[in-house]
Design a protein around this nucleic acid. Structure first.
Ligand SMILES: NC(=O)c1ccc[n+]([C@@H]2O[C@H](COP(=O)([O-])OP(=O)(O)OC[C@H]3O[C@@H](n4cnc5c(N)ncnc54)[C@H](O)[C@@H]3O)[C@@H](O)[C@H]2O)c1
Ligand SMILES: NC(=O)c1ccc[n+]([C@@H]2O[C@H](COP(=O)([O-])OP(=O)(O)OC[C@H]3O[C@@H](n4cnc5c(N)ncnc54)[C@H](O)[C@@H]3O)[C@@H](O)[C@H]2O)c1
Lengths: 230, 230
DNA sequence: GGAAGTCTGTGAAAACCTTCACGGGAGCGG
DNA sequence: CCGCTCCCGTGAAGGTTTTCACAGACTTCC
């Protein structure tokens, strides 16, 4: 008899690809949504600190950001006891703690790949530095010799990628190349030891588990808005 | 006796501000996350159609995007029965349906306010048009006379906002002004009848319920990545 | 035309996330 | 130092989203 051609990996069940969400820290599991809110708390505290506020209650914070007060308390409680009953949270203290938790208490070195329209706009944005990120250098394939780009950031030819990443101990990349180049560039970044990528290219990247990717997908946001207003 | 000063609206319970998610359509409630995935399905189908694929199964789609096949089926089932058992989903057909559901089967007219670094990059981006959006005109306060900006899009002084929005029947805005101006500009947009805003400014906007706002918050994404790689 | 195999749609279960509600600790005023 | 009030931390409840698992519908191939 002829052997049937094996169509697929076989097996009765197909576990598909699970959608991870959340990471564990210290034993407990932290929902991904909590981390995003942590950033918002940190930013609100920055503003409060600027206003010389000494304390803030969970309900004040929640009103400022549009959450419930219970959520604020629960989110913060994942990471320790920062509040004082009958008083609230000490602003400066909590802010310092959040920055430590998020890892933004130290300046993070970032590389940007793809100095086109969007890449250039990002290079000239001062807001990142304010939040503890520094774009140290940028790369493009259309650069014959190193040059100084927007905001005084050096732009190198993509061939120098590996060398420069190592030189500056960069662990973090922003990806704004064209769609066709995205996967190839991502591969090189990962091979060079990058551990996180903020990807503006509307392409789902294939990456090993240990590399964290966040997508910023503008067309998706627009379509989503479109749905809600039809 | 002296009357105590009324400290707060009173009441023993404080219902805080609830966090909405999802909207109702046709009676059922659609999770917000489903809508985002719908956009991704639509884009994947666009690519499949380009490759002349005639059909696609939920498991193929799920593999392409990194979800589970059950999720794909459930998401699509919110809106009707598009699949054929033993066959899969007809690519062209499903794509047309998704575009209709998302409202991207017609071209949507969009205005952009704040033609700075980021605004200019967005103006010169062709990808929106491909997805069914057209940035019709842009506004800035630093424009003395109407001029033609990137990609041939006219840039007007902000004073002309109301007039031009009405002229082009624009219902949709992208906000890339400076932080200080964001709330004021949003107010004007809303007063002018805009129903959705894609906001790049890291400021929580106060808006009436019927206006849908999506935030693109790059610093937040960076901080979030930072947490996961500490 | 029939049998084997594929793949959808969907209840039910599980996982996950948010809100409720309250005990009790901390400040504060007297 | 005491009592009163405020507000945190947290188990439990409630709600939402994802995954499982399967009946049945459709295709395909002989
Ligand atoms: N511009 C926008 O507003 C916008 C909006 C949403 C998404 N995006 C996405 O961001 C990406 C960039 O958009 P853009 O408008 O800046 O495009 P762009 O064409 O202006 O810039 C792309 C840059 O990447 C460089 N590049 C291409 N291949 C490379 C490689 N292998 N190595 C190094 N550099 C390489 C090009 O030389 C170019 O400078 C695109 O994927 C686009 O889909 C852009
Ligand atoms: N550039 C980036 O990469 C980036 C990244 C993340 C967030 N953002 C945010 O996007 C916004 C814009 O950033 P940018 O770098 O393009 O800044 P920018 O200063 O280059 O541009 C802001 C533009 O808005 C215009 N403007 C200010 N007030 C206005 C008003 N009342 N009416 C009309 N126009 C007005 C200014 O004239 C200027 O052209 C900022 O809020 C920033 O926080 C920018």
């Amino acid at each position: 008899m002829t052997a049937k051609r094996p169509k697929a990996p076989r097996g009765t069940s197909h576990p598909d690809t699970p959608a991870d969400s959340g990471s564990s820290l210290d034993g407990r599991k932290i929902p991904a949504a909590v981390i995003k809110r942590l950033s918002l708390y940190a930013r609100a505290l920055q503003e409060l600190e600027r206003q010389q506020a000494e304390k803030v209650s969970s309900s004040e914070l929640s009103r400022l950001l549009g959450f419930t007060s219970a959520q604020v308390r629960k989110d913060l409680a994942y990471f320790g006891q920062f509040g004082v009953p009958g008083f609230g949270y000490p602003v400066g203290d909590l802010r310092r703690n959040l920055r430590r938790i998020l890892g933004t208490d130290r300046e993070l070195q970032v590389a940007l790949v793809g100095v086109g329209h969007l890449g250039t706009a990002l290079l000239s944005y001062g807001g990142f530095t304010r939040q503890g990120f520094r774009i140290v250098c940028a790369f493009d394939k259309e650069v014959s010799a190193p040059r100084i780009g927007a905001a005084g950031i050096p732009v190198y030819h993509i061939d120098e990628l590996e060398k420069r990443l190592a030189e500056h101990a960069i662990g973090f990349a922003i990806l704004t190349v064209s769609s066709e180049a995205a996967q190839a560039v991502a591969n090189r970044l990962i091979a060079a030891g990058i551990s996180a990528i903020l990807n503006f290219v509307p392409v789902r990247l294939q990456t090993p588990e240990h590399v964290k990717i966040h997508y910023v997908d503008l067309a998706l946001e627009m379509e989503s808005l479109s749905f809600y207003t039809r």
